[in-house]
Amino acid sequence: MNIFRLVADLLHLASIFILLLKIQQTKSCAGVSLKTQALYFVVFVTRYLDLFTHFYSVYNSLMKLFFIASSAYIVYLMWKPYRPTYSASTDTFRAEFLIVGAALLGLAFPDSWHILDILWSFSIYLEAVAILPQLFQMTRTGEAETITSHYVFALGAYRALYLMNWIYRYYTEGYMDVIAWVAGAVQTILYADFFYIYLTRVMRGRLFSLP
């Protein structure tokens, strides 16, 4: 564990609490992509099956359980109690393409041919693009509630810190994980536009709105 990874994981946790806070405070999930949230649930379930086969640390297991449980809870909230507030008409990104694409990539470039490694690879590829429906929705509506943009920013910052974590681990441990690196770099690049708008607008107290 290093400081980049720890802060990254904590930002990931924070992003989930920010999202739950947004839903609870505004009593609405308007502007939140259910597709992105459902994709994250699929990502966590397919990646963390090693909960049953491997024990790394209490921290590792608790975080995995939290990510699975919280993503299931968010999908539930959007699907049932807050369904009337869900902006389905702007959440129109074709998420099935992302799932099919990640599945094909997982089969073409798996970490190994063990079923858990194929699913792990699939989840890494899927996570890289899972934010796209959310970003697409924000582009379509042209703006987002400030708290929703905080959520996306925390997620993007978490990914950016993972890049620094990998550089650090490469030099200190000789750690290499090409699949995670490439997918992680792609994932971080997807946030580039968002970061720019967030930093120039939201940080100055303005609404997240596209120029």
Partner: peptide
């Protein structure tokens, strides 16, 4: 081990 590769990151 059940898997070839160990992934200790979240």
């Amino acid at each position: 081990r059940a898997r070839n590769n160990v992934h200790d990151e979240l």
